[in-house]
Computed example of a mutant assay.
Amino acid sequence: MKMKLIGFAIATAFAASAGVASAQSVVKIGHVGPLTGGIAHLGKDNEFGGRLAIEELNSKGLTIGGKQVKFELIGEDDAADPKQGTAAAQKLVDSGVAGVVGHLNSGTSIPAARIYSNAGIPQISPSSTAPSYTKQGFKTTFRVVANDGQLGGTLGRYAVTELKAKSIAVIDDRTAYGQGVADEFEKAVKAAGGKIVGREFTNDKATDFSAILTKLKGAKPDVVFYGGMDAVAGPMMRQMKQLGIDAKFMGGDGICTGEMAKLAGDAIGEGKVICAEAGGVTPDKAAGIEDFKKRFKAKFGIDVQLYAPYVYDAVNTMVAAMQKADSTDPKKYLPELAKINYEGITGKIAFDQFGDMKDAALTLYTYKGGQKTQMMVVK
């Protein structure tokens, strides 16, 4: 009889523990960015922002739909390549993710968006700024930063009205992001009465710019705008200095990184570069961002590069929508995501009918003493 009671007790304890296990739910959230290639430092920065968000969410022991949830970040590398990006997107869909934060680049986010839409999986990009990304008509597509129309337009107007530039040259890397932001910059310059003295292009893996820079040198530009990423912009600035082109250097968020000063070396100058980050932290959010940066460095041993705070906010926004819907099923929480009003560390996150940010902020930066230095937040 005693043996039977012991056996019953063990069986009961096992059943109880099994019940706890079955009441837990693993929720996969995908992240995609370039973890290899010239801008791998930005891709890793993004992924680390997501991993910090996941770790902190799991420490809260959230319950959704009557089950305690454990979030898991599934990271994929798209190498900033559209073909690899769509393969990564399909892989995430096949793995059963409940949502995706990514991709970093517009050129990979745009084709991947169709795959996520077909699967009914919400996608929030923390850094893709091409206007066409959200204009494809997909209800699953969102972003938590300003688009190139806002970013390029602000920089174009600033070049003419604040820098009083008389002759402006434009270079882009022919990617969806680089060409897009350069086009918007050029439109804004012309609308403000400025003069474009040259438009050239390179590619996102180029290292020699002597031909296009020599051509532009003859036009004597007082501003050179580059649409592309820091891995190309830094060496381009070095060659500008070698050729004696003494112009202000402007660009979008792709060049507005902590690495830019290292990549440009002594060509970075003092206040020579003016760039804009698609996002902005007003003074009331400054303490929260500084706290995030400290937690980030304590966890990963490196400084935030650029978009980690926006990835962090994107993950938390997605989970906030799940909590409102009391479901991790994409079909059920997607309507809540579309009408979310979430107070993130970067500011208020709310989307318009396209999935673009309402009242998106931009931050203008320069470099002083080799350090990225904030100038102003504009909306």
Rank of each mutant, 00 (worst) to 15 (best):
G178K: 12
S167M: 00
G96P: 07
V189I: 10
K139R: 14
I196W: 01
L155G: 00
T161Y: 00
K83F: 02
F138A: 12
A211M: 06
P126Y: 15
G193L: 11
Q84P: 03
I212A: 02
A80I: 08
G137W: 13
D208M: 07
G85E: 07
S117D: 08
T134V: 15
Q136W: 11
Q123L: 14
V181A: 04
A182G: 11
Y177A: 13
K164R: 08
I168Y: 05
P82A: 09
T202E: 08
K83T: 06
T141G: 09
E162S: 01
K195N: 10
Q84C: 03
E162F: 03
I212C: 05
A188C: 07
V97D: 02
A191N: 14
T134H: 15
I168F: 04
S117Q: 04
D81R: 06
L155W: 00
K166M: 01
Q90A: 00
D81I: 09
V93L: 05
G194Q: 02
L155V: 02
G198R: 09
S106Q: 09
D208A: 06
G193Y: 12
K205I: 12
V93G: 09
Q150I: 06
R114P: 00
P131I: 07
S127D: 15
R199S: 06
T207Y: 03
G178M: 15
G137V: 11
F201L: 05
